[in-house]
Design a protein around this nucleic acid. Structure first.
Lengths: 193, 193
DNA sequence: AGAGTTAATCAACACAGTGTCTATTATAAG
DNA sequence: CTTATAATAGACACTGTGTTGATTAACTCT
């Protein structure tokens, strides 16, 4: 008794159309009616799979979150004092960007200006959690602000990458990010010496 | 024929309650019915002032945007090569934080996880526009990514400040931000030398 | 303080989308 | 081919929307 092909087909179509519609009219404005009409199946069918729009959103987001968590776990948590070591950070960062690229469509929509702000919040909390694990109990003065700064900066870069059609390779993005981390944006822009 | 006090009172109550409800149940879930019941006036009255929820949102956001633009204009646009000069940047940054504090309630709601992602997008575009004006046509390799990095980082810091109840003074925040800008988050955290 | 103006109220309206249901048809698994 | 179950189609009550018309209340200005 494997999983019915019909289910897989329907769910895939739902999620695909969902990303499309978020991009098109914004998450708020997407209705179940819209979605099912566009994907060309009965409205009732939607409710066979998800409770409502937010349930669909939730489950789609969680899939991504779980993927990221899996990468974090497989990479391990490096002590913050090693973060400036690009040779070590680079491969890890590449793995993340490769994963993001796989989910590019959905992420572009949900992290875009018409997307779901709570998803970014979830990602930030996840990243901060990872940093804290890596730090192993050590804290810094203004540590929370430094983390907010870093984490937001990274997400901003990812957003811009997604928004501009992921033209750079994951490797390039990883390099860019580690450089900006190490030297600060001003210096890596050549604005200070 | 000055402006009717009733109008001012109603609009203020609307906006105040709006921020409250966004915080409480999220922008998506806020209904005009909610809003007017909570603010204790007739639902029809709302439509005397705004077309719908999004019109209200739009106009509230624009007020803030205009305020920020005004500050930018009065401060002028410094060449990026001077941004590491904390003595010069500090007072400007302070002015911004003071303004943000005035609109703290609304901003906390609208920039929070249940807020409006398009507002952050507007702010980012505004900030990037300012940077470009200041740069006066000069560009950098990966300039767009560097700007995305910086602008997002700054907004992230602001968000965290709002979210934690604006405990630091505008001056302190300005200092923190300029430091992280200059040295990069790692260095200002003491993680590299 | 009083006349005129206009904001706010109240009730009613058709309309959109929701989430649930039942009976029926179509498609997949074994 | 049989059995199970996913998808369809239509109907249901419900909630919130945005507009309207008639009435009441509050403000402005002289």
């Amino acid at each position: 008794m494997k999983e019915d092909r019909r289910i897989k087909r329907t769910r895939e179509k739902i999620r695909e159309t969902f990303a499309l519609l978020i991009e098109e009219k914004g998450l708020d404005a997407v209705t179940v009616k819209d979605l099912t009409e566009r994907a060309d199946f009965n409205r009732g069918t939607f409710y066979l799979h998800y409770q409502d729009k937010y349930d669909l959103l939730e489950k789609s987001e969680e899939e991504v979150i779980r993927g990221i968590t899996a990468i974090s776990d497989s990479i391990g948590y490096n002590d913050p004092s090693s973060w400036a070591d690009s040779a070590r950070m680079h491969p890890s960062a590449t793995a993340y960007f490769e994963f993001l690229k796989q989910h590019g469509n959905f992420l572009k929509a949900v992290m875009g200006p018409k997307g779901d702000p709570s998803f970014q919040d979830k990602l930030k909390k996840l990243m901060i959690g990872n940093i804290k694990k890596a730090a192993g109990g050590k804290t810094l003065p203004h540590g929370d602000y430094i983390m907010a700064f870093m984490v937001s900066a990274h997400l901003g870069v990812v957003q811009h990458w997604l928004d501009t059609g992921m033209k750079e390779t994951p490797e390039q993005m990883a390099g860019l990010l580690t450089a900006m981390n190490k030297y600060g944006p001003l210096k890596s822009g050549g604005l200070t010496s």
